[in-house]
Computed example of a mutant assay.
Amino acid sequence: MSAFRLDADQVAYARRVSDIAVEHLLPLTGTAEGRVNRPLLRAMGEHGLLRGLFGGAPDEPARDAAALQLCLLRESLAQVSGEAETALALQGLGSYPILQSGSAELVQRWIPQVIAGDAVAAFALSEPGAGSDAAALELRADPEGDGWALTGEKIWISNAPEADVYTVFARTTPDARARGVTAFAVPGDAPGLSGEHLDMLSPHPIGRLVFDGVRVDRAAVLGDVDAGFAVAMRTLDLFRPSVGAFAIGMAQAALDATLQHVRERTVYGAPLAQQQSVAHRLADLVTELEASRLLVYAAASAYDAGDDRDAQPRRSAMAKLYATEAAQRIIDGCVQLHGARALQHGHLLEHLYRDVRSLRIYEGASEIQRTIIARDLIGKVSSR
C-alpha cells in the first residue's frame, strides 16, 4: 500500500468532529470522574457522533463499522478531550459485537439506544486470571433449561458496574480454551449481576462484575455457541487500530502544547525553541507521530477494503503497538520540555501523562501485540 493521504471529505469530517467536541462536549467533561458521564453520551448521540462508530451518517441505519472513520473520529476527539473520546470508544467496543453477531431482535433492542446515548454498553472479557490470555477465562455458563446460568467474575471492565448492556464472554465448554467460549448480551439489571467501581491511576469508569447464577437464554447468544472467541477477536481487530488513533490524538495535543511552550518560554535570553537539543527532540517526536498516523490509517483502510483478511490481526497489532508505545514516548518528551509545570495537577500534560499509560495494556498489552505479529511472520516463513 502506498503512503496514505486523507481526501477532502475525510479532512472535513475530522474538523467537524473537532468543532462539535469543542463547542458541545468539552463543557460537559470533568463532572463525573471515575463514573459514566451520561449527559456527555447523550450529547454525543444528539450530534450524531455515536452513529459514527458504525460508519453511518445521522439519518442512516447502523451498519458495519468503517475502521478509518472510527480512527478519524477517535483521533479528533482525543485532541480535544480524552474523557469524551473514551466515552465514545467504550460505547463502540461494548455494542459492536451485538451489531456484528446479534439477532435482529437484539440489534433493534440495543443499538438505537446506544447510538442515541441512552444506553451504556460495555465489553466484559477480562478476568482476574485471564487478561492477556483471554482464552483462559473461567466465567462459567452452566446449562440450565433452554439456556445457561453465568457464574464467576469479570474485572477491569470499562463502564462497569453502570452499563445497561454487557457483551459477556463465558465458558460453555470446559477445558476447550478458545473453542469453548460463547458471547452473550446481558442486561445490566439482570438478576444475580452485581459489581463495584475500581479506582485507577487515571479517573475512568471501570469496575468489577460478579455473576451469581445470571440467567441467559439462547436469544442472548452473539454468533454461535462455543464461537465467542471469534466474536471478540473480530471486534478487537477493528478497534485496535483506533486505539492507536486515540494515542495519536493525545500525542498531537501534547505536541501542539509543547510547540507553543518552547516558542514562548525564554531561556538564556532566547526562546527555548532555539536550543538545538530542543529542536532536534521535537523533530524526533513529530517523526514518530507521523509514522504512527500512517501505520494506523493504513491498517484501518485495509480493513475497510477487505484486503487479505488473514493479515488483519497483524496489521491491527502493529498499528496499536507502535502508536501506543510512540505516544508514551512523545508525551514523556513533551513533559520533559515543559519542565516541572507539566507535573502540576490540572496541567494538560499531567492529564495526558496519566491517561496514555493504559493504552499499552488494554485491548491486548504491547507484549501480546508483538506475539501476534511474530506468530504471523514466522508462520508465513514456515509455510513457504
Rank of each mutant, 00 (worst) to 15 (best):
R314N: 05
G56L: 14
E325G: 06
E46P: 13
V231T: 07
R74G: 15
R179M: 12
S383N: 15
Y297M: 12
A247F: 02
R315K: 13
G228S: 03
A32D: 07
F123P: 09
G30E: 10
S158W: 01
R357F: 05
G213N: 02
T86P: 06
I368V: 13
A57W: 10
R16G: 14
R293T: 02
V221Q: 03
T182D: 13
Y322R: 08
G34M: 10
L125R: 11
G244Q: 02
L198E: 15
V216R: 01
A253G: 07
L294C: 14
T167Y: 02
I248A: 02
V216I: 01
A183Y: 01
F169H: 07
P161K: 00
E367D: 09
G213L: 10
L337G: 02
A121I: 02
L359G: 06
R38D: 07
A62Q: 12
A149C: 10
L238I: 05
E144K: 15
I111M: 08
R109A: 11
L49Y: 02
V186N: 04
H261M: 06
G94T: 00
F211K: 13
G195W: 00
A163K: 01
G249P: 03
H261L: 12
H338R: 01
L137T: 12
S132C: 14
G30T: 13
Q10H: 01
G244N: 03
L150M: 11
A163S: 07
S358T: 06
K380W: 05
G339W: 06
I378K: 14
A136M: 08
V168N: 00
L70C: 04
L193T: 04
A43R: 03
A121Q: 06
Q260P: 05
G145P: 07
A149R: 10
A232G: 04
G55E: 14
R177D: 14
G244Y: 05
A8N: 08
L209S: 02
D284S: 14
R15D: 13
A232S: 12
P58Q: 08
L272V: 03
A89V: 14
S358V: 15
R375A: 14
A176Q: 11
S101E: 10
R109C: 13
E196F: 13
W110G: 05
T29Q: 11
P271D: 04
E264V: 12
G117F: 07
D7T: 05
P112N: 09
G56A: 11
Y96R: 05
A12G: 11
A122D: 02
R15K: 07
S103Y: 00
K154S: 02
P143Y: 03
L321F: 11
P143N: 04
L348E: 04
S126P: 07
A270V: 15
P161A: 04
T172H: 13
V186Q: 01
T266I: 12
E46V: 03
V243H: 12
D142R: 12
A136H: 13
A219C: 08
L6N: 07
L50E: 09
S76K: 06
D224L: 09
R357D: 04
A342E: 07
Y322S: 10
R51E: 07
G192W: 01
L49A: 05
L72C: 09
A122N: 00
A283V: 03
S95W: 04
R109M: 06
L88N: 11
